[in-house]
Amino acid sequence: MSTKLSSTLNLQHGLTDGTPLPISAIREGFGKGMLEAGKHDPRVVGLSADLTESTQMHLFAKEFPDRFVQVGVAEQNLATVASGLAAAGKIPFASSFAAFSPGRNWEQIRTTICYNNQPVKMVGSHSGLSAGPDGATHQILEDVALMRVLPNMVVVVPADAEQTRTATLALAQDPRPAYLRLVREKTPVFTTPETPFEIGKAQVISEGSDVTIVVAGPFIVEALKAAAQLGNLASLEIINMHTISPFDHTTLIASAQKTGRVITIEDHQIIGGLAGAVCESLAEHCPTPVMRLGLKNTFGESGQVPELWKKHNLSAEGIVAAVQAFLKRTA
């Protein structure tokens, strides 16, 4: 591997010595984090819109039935009842599938949570293509854009299950409204309980000099595989942009100044989400050529998640091809 792994992030050993990484779903990390947050702070309450186990909220609901509210299939109510609970001094986590929340209840989130500035944490599971066989209706590829545009809103897209657990605990202690984006599919866990997590502080997973790979979501390990496959052909700097808003301009710009090429990777439309944030930042502060991997103005479709991710180049092969094309284009 030509990339140099971070020595300060306390990542899984398997990343460097080739042992298999543990596998877990990002939503499972949320379930654990939610339960822990509930134990730490009695103000933490949970809400669900008929998808309690799917979003892994059931662990909290079982432990704290008196602090759990089942609103039924009613996402507008999910957001607004959560706002009311926050007004009464609670720290609500409100979970559903991301296609419906924030897919359906955007105005309620805007007015009663963001403008109202209540510390409600909206939790959207089965985001992007990770809704897999359910098809395009359930594969929301626009949610980060919808949430990122809102003032006051923190937007977190964790990279693996362990980071999701840590992020959930951090959000429970943060006074701002937030959106936490979850994934249904099991993916490799490369962080550890010792890996630091700070809202708004991107993580440079590996240092490199030719191309910056900015990742939002569970594609860090794919990017590392791509780096290994590229070997001496290209040195990749891989950044885990787990927080989309507030955006870490400093880390991105420092890397772009070094490499002069940026590739974004996200299970989302290539407009409005991570790529949008990266392009806005670079255009204003450090004009740099960018390639965007994600959905290109199209809806998803039914299929197994890994094959859907592959189809849209959210894979080591896709990243390798993008890097090669990028190097050729900018040679």
Binding site: V81, G84, A88
Partner: peptide, 11 residues
Amino acid sequence: LSQAAGMALGL
């Protein structure tokens, strides 16, 4: 009404 209901639940 849903915000008011949330407040009533929290209280």
